[in-house]
Simulated assay, not measured.
Amino acid sequence: MSFISVIAKENFITVMSDSEAVGSESTPNPEQHVVKVGEKEFVATAGGDREAREVIAKHISDLLIEGTPYDRILVILEMTLAAFSEKGKSVMTAFGGINASGEIEVCTYDPNSRAERHLKPRGSDIAYFFLAEGAGKYGNLYELLQNYWKETGTETPSAMIQSQKLLNRYVASKDEDVSTSTVKLVLKR
């Protein structure tokens, strides 16, 4: 399993994933739970199985490269994930970046709860997503993240990465399937 956090502000996005799938003797090819698309966008996947995550990440990446609007990608993602969910391969997905208008935009969809979010943070707004199966079992992660922000601040990508690292360590302490080792992605406007 993997734990991924996505934080977006008006001028940047930070994405952090535990690096549980970095490869081992039994799995020599590492899996990327977070894929950078071009210089301005990303796709993140968790849950389901590796094949399903890779298919979804490739499909969304292709749509981003083609310049498909985010709201349209979200509709396509919901339909695609509905087919995977019927096969018992439920994949939580987040994507976004700097859209065609030069604005930060992020979307997520969880086929388990059918919850979707499509946000464009402005001013001091902070958009956040967590991709993890059963994230509720870790307690109120947003409240915990807000407490970390009191320590790290929220104004810079490095401050957000620091808070996400603390959050990842907390989740890893509660779940042996989540690694304390992490990988990060920062996109700036």
Rank of each mutant, 00 (worst) to 15 (best):
K165M: 06
L141D: 03
A127R: 07
T68H: 08
A132Y: 02
F95G: 00
A100Q: 13
V34S: 00
S19Q: 06
N99D: 15
L141Q: 11
A44I: 02
P69Y: 11
R53A: 08
F95P: 00
F130P: 13
V106G: 00
S85D: 09
R189E: 09
I4W: 08
N11P: 00
A172W: 01
N29C: 08
E155V: 01
K188E: 15
K137C: 13
Q146H: 10
D62W: 02
T152R: 12
G67N: 08
D18T: 06
A172H: 05
I126H: 10
N112K: 12
R117K: 14
N11T: 06
S24H: 07
V37A: 06
K40S: 14
A127G: 15
L145P: 00
P111V: 09
A44G: 10
I104V: 15
G48Q: 07
I73N: 05
V37N: 05
A8K: 13
K40V: 03
S26N: 06
I98G: 00
T45C: 15
G102N: 02
Q32H: 11
S24C: 12
G139C: 11
K165F: 04
V186G: 04
N11C: 03
T93P: 01
E78L: 03
V171D: 03
A172S: 14
E143A: 15
E105L: 03
S181A: 13
R189L: 09
V186M: 11
F42E: 02
G102A: 03
I104Q: 02
A82T: 13
S61R: 03
L63Q: 10
I126T: 15
K137Q: 14
I161S: 01
L187E: 01
R122L: 15
I13P: 01
S26K: 09
I126Y: 10
A44L: 04
H118L: 07
F130N: 13
T27I: 11
I126L: 13
S113M: 13
D18Q: 10
T80A: 08
F12W: 06
A135L: 08
G97V: 00
S163V: 01
E133T: 09
S2C: 12
N168T: 11
V15D: 00
L145G: 00
D177C: 09
S158I: 07
H118N: 12
L64Q: 12
A83R: 09
L81H: 05
G38K: 04
E78P: 00
L63G: 01
P30G: 08
E86R: 12
G47A: 08
E78D: 08
L63C: 10
Y170M: 13
D177A: 10
R50K: 13
R53V: 05
H59D: 11
S124R: 15
G47E: 04
L166W: 04
L77W: 01
S61T: 06
